[in-house]
Design a protein around this nucleic acid. Structure first.
Lengths: 339, 339
DNA sequence: GCGAGTAACCGAAACGTTTCGGTTCTGACA
DNA sequence: TGTCAGAACCGAAACGTTTCGGTTACTCGC
């Protein structure tokens, strides 16, 4: 196999045509008769021709790759299964079009910006995924400046300049709250994510609105940070005197940390405190009691986002996509309110 | 910013030299006086010149990217923090050299092979990471055939044709077993991983050898599969009559599943059964009791593996690297053997 | 039997580097 | 003063595509 690469020149000369005809034929462009097109295809097959990504890339000014810059402390990322599933979904769509996924890890917000600048300067990718979007996220304006196509994952509904894929979390949160209220809970707290994230606000708003709609006063909001430790700290603050009987956490890691600490502090779950998470990561099945959570669809989101991104790279103006809302998955971590 | 790209031609003409001189100057090659080299550098800076990855790629026949094909069912991957940390470590080294990481997800072994073939045919990457190596792993011979540089992560010590990075697990497992024996355990079981993995055998051998060295008969071996469910099934088989007093699991997920099921079956941990895992995932700190485990170093392994891979791509023949052995982290899941 | 229109095909430039063989120039040495 | 080595620099090919303007030949209508 150490033979030199088969080029389109070889294919063309074997089929007895010009390079340009071979190119047109193999790429399904018009201007070639069906007969010679077939002849060229056969020549290519016979020779085992594989188009050179590098040649194509240089000539067509495309990278045939898209980027994903995740910005998380590695230990947090390691514990969060969202990305693995998201990447799996995205990759399954990208592979079909011969696109590859370039993955980068950034530790800080500034680092993430720098990564994007670099990806753009190198023309390393034709577009990027925009996850975990913040309020006034600097990446958005940077990418706009750079002219880099992008797709947003659950961005702010207003004023987002790129196409997006969304999953509505409100119905799921609403049914969770309804369920808790039916179980007799009237003091339902919320452990939020970091305030700068769009989805932090979305989840908190949904929690509050669902309560208000049922005429129940929203319980306390405790600022979390999507980590185990944040959940533990929330437990410390929650477990004092007249504490809530239920708590809705902004993600599963937080919920697991909270449960763990609450149990250490002598509470029984769900008898003393009902706990619900958000993500529906399999993690929740591995703790006791099993975690009640909202099951999101990271794989599907990844697949849809990739579809949108590829369409955009191809020059289309894809419409936003909304996938089925997150579903409530009941575990043993919630039960009737005390007393 | 919609101006045309600054090319090396622009730099050369601004500095009043030929393209070849500009190229040599910017790449630190000899044949350019220090004076003109400086002039060329200034010209490049003034113009904001960024070398075209595509041009370089076509001309130098390098991709400036390396690949990682992970082969896991997505839900298993999602729960396994190894890869996130590994990728973070690898990426930190790659970025310094302007290399990118192409990540692919394969669902089956055949799919993984196909991905590698595709990466090679497209010349998409200059080398690949080889993780989770199996006995007679078909990827090894494929990559050898394809002439694709690779680096092995904990491969079989004998007969592996690529450089590798290793972390010795034996000392950690030995001290775990020693610790259990000191606690009075004489019947210590093992829940293994799937038999085809090299590291499954490595861990089992270390367990057995440590026991034999202390004159203790190895307890039963139960075949697991690195999943939570596998741990549950192992618990079902273990908890009958005269069961072992301690069990060493091939990974943390298995250990957590086993603990959870054992508790459901009425056992108290560690009083009735001591449990130890392997990986040191954060989740282990959030189950009750907390999990005793061996802490591996995925981030460091990723960084070292990337270093080796880049050296290899650069034409060197890097030596194998061995990082500090995995360390034992004690949790509440092990205790004295029942009287 | 002639002009126009069109389908099929060709040739060459362009993409932006690296690399290699060749030319010029300087200074040292005999 | 002529020779020669070596440093500095240049020009052009090569990498493998895509694309665009141009040529040929054929058909159709009159």
């Amino acid at each position: 196999m150490a033979t030199d690469r088969v080029t389109i020149l070889d294919v063309a000369s074997r089929a007895g045509v010009a390079i340009s005809s071979a190119s047109a034929a193999l790429n399904g462009r018009p201007g070639v008769s069906e007969e010679t097109r077939e002849r060229i295809r056969n020549a290519a097959d016979d020779l085992g021709y594989v188009p050179s990504l590098r040649g194509r890339s240089l000539s067509s000014k495309r990278a045939f790759a898209v980027g994903l810059v995740v910005q998380r402390p590695t230990d947090v990322l390691a514990a969060d299964p969202f990305f693995a599933a998201f990447i799996g979904g995205a990759e399954s769509v990208l592979a079909e079009d011969g696109y590859a996924l370039v993955l980068q890890m950034a530790t800080t917000a500034e680092d993430a910006l720098e990564r994007h600048r670099r990806l753009a300067a190198d023309r390393r990718v034709d577009g990027v995924f925009l996850n975990e979007i913040r309020i006034d996220d600097p990446r958005v304006s940077l990418l706009t400046e750079l002219g880099m196509p992008a797709v947003g994952i659950n961005p702010d509904p207003t004023d987002f300049p790129f196409p997006s894929v969304r999953q509505d979390h409100k119905p799921g949160i609403t049914s969770l709250i309804d369920h808790l209220i039916e179980l007799g809970h009237v003091n339902i707290a919320h452990v939020s994510g970091p305030s700068e994230f769009i989805h932090t606000r979305q989840r908190m708003d949904a929690w509050r609105e669902a309560l208000v709609a049922r005429g129940v006063d929203p319980g306390p909001v405790i600022a979390g940070d999507f980590t185990y430790e944040g959940g533990e700290r929330a437990a410390d603050r929650l477990v004092s005197g007249d504490h809530p009987t239920a708590v809705f956490c902004a993600n599963d890691l937080t919920a697991i940390g909270l449960m763990s600490r609450a149990q250490e502090l002598g509470l029984t779950i769900p008898e003393d405190l009902s706990v619900a998470g958000f993500d529906g990561v399999r993690l929740g099945d591995y703790v006791r009691p099993t975690l009640t959570s909202l099951q999101t669809s990271p794989w599907l989101m990844g697949a849809k986002a990739a579809t949108i991104l590829l369409d955009q790279v191809a020059g289309m103006e894809p419409a936003d996509i909304t996938v089925e809302p997150a579903e409530l998955h009941l575990g043993g971590s919630i039960g009737p309110a005390r007393g």
